[in-house]
Design a protein around this nucleic acid. Sequence first.
DNA 1: CGCCACTTTGAATTAGCTCAAATTCCGTGG
DNA 2: CCACGGAATTTGAGCTAATTCAAAGTGGCG
Lengths: 273, 273
Amino acid sequence: MLNTQIATAAQVTLASTLATSAKGAAHTLLHAPVLKSDAAANQRASQHVAETLKLLIEKLAPQRRVVHAGDLVYQGGESFGHLYVMTSGFFKLVNLSADGREQVVGLKFRGDWLGFDGIANGRYACDAVAMDTGEVLVIRYDALFAACAAQPALMTALHEAMSREIARDRDSLMSVCTLPADARVADFLRYWAESLARRGLRSDQITLRMTRAEIGNYLGMTLETVSRSLSKLARAGVILFAEKGRRDVQIPDVDALSEFIQHCLAPASAVLQ
Amino acid sequence: MLNTQIATAAQVTLASTLATSAKGAAHTLLHAPVLKSDAAANQRASQHVAETLKLLIEKLAPQRRVVHAGDLVYQGGESFGHLYVMTSGFFKLVNLSADGREQVVGLKFRGDWLGFDGIANGRYACDAVAMDTGEVLVIRYDALFAACAAQPALMTALHEAMSREIARDRDSLMSVCTLPADARVADFLRYWAESLARRGLRSDQITLRMTRAEIGNYLGMTLETVSRSLSKLARAGVILFAEKGRRDVQIPDVDALSEFIQHCLAPASAVLQ
DNA sequence: CGCCACTTTGAATTAGCTCAAATTCCGTGG
DNA sequence: CCACGGAATTTGAGCTAATTCAAAGTGGCG
């Protein structure tokens, strides 16, 4: 396991640091624990995506670009000029470090923006690769920038998208740092299903468009471990593989994935596997 | 080790995926490998920070808030209304998941903004905790939003800061996912030193304001492993501890840290440790 | 039909974790 | 100023989750 200590000793340490230092006011305002999927919230989110796309199309009349599996929308090092907003399809973001390490650092779905990483330095910091046929709106950053001044709704949409990305990236880091391998895979599936649900797509049956090696790379583990974890999830009945092929995963109950994660974190439960 | 495979089999897999799918155009535009620290770039960055702070102060005349070690600037779950820009000090961002896992997901220095995570949902997603005495500019988001329309420079600064945060978070994820423990600690120190250098502060001597437990939590490893890795770095002469106390770390040569990381990644080198 | 890439599963190995004990540091009060 | 106690750190020893290495199985596609 990566780090059980995080749920025990380290957590106590951090918590006590906060408690003593925050002058007794720490953690009285926690989010309501959202462990259950929320259909109403998903519908709202889906509608919000549709409205944002409509807004962008109306205000900016952007060019559209159709992509196919394997196409690069932009490439690390390339000069920044455009942002892209997905209307359909599925993308991965791949980072390449100076010393040659390569990693999938993000997954993107309909409504997500691509290219934020390029704003600060004038160069894109990663590759955006289509994993499937899809379409993006091509948005000139300077045009968007200018339009934002006159159209507050555009700026709101932009800021919201960047904010969401920041929050999501942190959740990713958290998953990698605090969950053991099995739970990480479960969390990955949960995130994917939730992402689909929030966009109004069916989420009980997802087609993994990534190989085990890519999933493992994204989650910080080997392809063998991904395979073993998926097998364990299937054995536990939390997921089902379609009869033919193992790229299609059925998720009868998303909440069961969350329970599985909790079960992985539980310290002293003797359930045979 | 977390994942040597990433540097071997998985990398080949990913690379070939890109190569075959990107129609032969993959990776011709890589960044220049920046393995060496760059004094000129640091100076430019430092000046840029100063200019941005000046701009914010002039245009928005923000309130200032002095903080001391342990103070919370904002708390997860709290209603969003302000962004904060650090003029001095040092902060950590702590995420708390719905199921109680807690993790340090970011470190912030002078010039960095705090609170972006709150824009999308109207609630902050993490705690921002001061690790030292410092000061932040308190910026009402609605005021900033309004001012951006008239002051393009403000919007540029805002977008740059968000973009930088997104890129940085991905580097974090990459470090955790692709580096073994020793290299991760080295990379952590390298990042810290670089962060100071880019702000015009001395970077050859840094005072770790975090316990081993916090560092380990941030890097996804235990406090014991952090301690062992630091000892190994000291034994290798890459860092030196101040005579009294082990919170002060001297870094005679930042580039030596990068070399150490490379050395950790090297597959078949038989150097005794 | 056969190749090739992907996946699964097993067995052995190891990096990092857990547990434990000794040491150092630092604030506090005598 | 020094003694004391609690917190943080270091280091060792054993354990275990995940990796590495290896081999067999499966499916898609020309």
